[in-house]
Amino acid sequence: MTTTTPVEEDGVKRRDFLYIAAGGVGAVGTAMAIWPFVDQMNPSADVLALSTTEVDLGAIEVGSEITAVWQGKPVFVRHRTADEIAAAERDDTANLPDPQADADRVIKPEWLIMLGVCTHLGCVPLKESGDFNGWFCPCHGSHYDTSGRIRKGPAPLNLPVPPYEFLDDTTVKIG
């Protein structure tokens, strides 16, 4: 009996190479064709363009806060009282699930600026409530302190601080 296909010494045939090469090129081509259908779901150019928000701080009195909108998300801008700052700094050494000093969360201690999005499942926490007089998330019971750090409940992380800078004494640019 004669073989029509030449067989190499290690048993690999020319045909095997062709199968793998053709299959490999086909798989890469298919993956490249699928990618646009996956990537179209990522944020589009106009969504990405809405990247900064300016906030006027002039009207925010001590002990009050406003909620600004940045990238569709609420941002808490709080004018903290001396007591709140003192409580936040005192708790730097407390047992924190996500340890972070208050000084690392603010540029000016009286202005606490952070996302109002619970790090558990994304609800908006309520101000001036909870066991630590900071924020309390009504959805699943996470307590944040006066620095916005997670203290108790299912949320794993502190309320995130967005990138921001002071344009002048009463204007801040978020993003």
């Binding site: 996956v38 779901m41 990522n42 944020p43 969504v47 990238q71 499942l121």
Partner: peptide, 26 residues
Amino acid sequence: TVITNLFGAIPVVGDTIVTWLWGGFS
């Protein structure tokens, strides 16, 4: 918001997946 954020619990790629599901940042 709550249900899509469930996918944010996935280590490393969680946030990327949530942004992909949303097509934005919320």
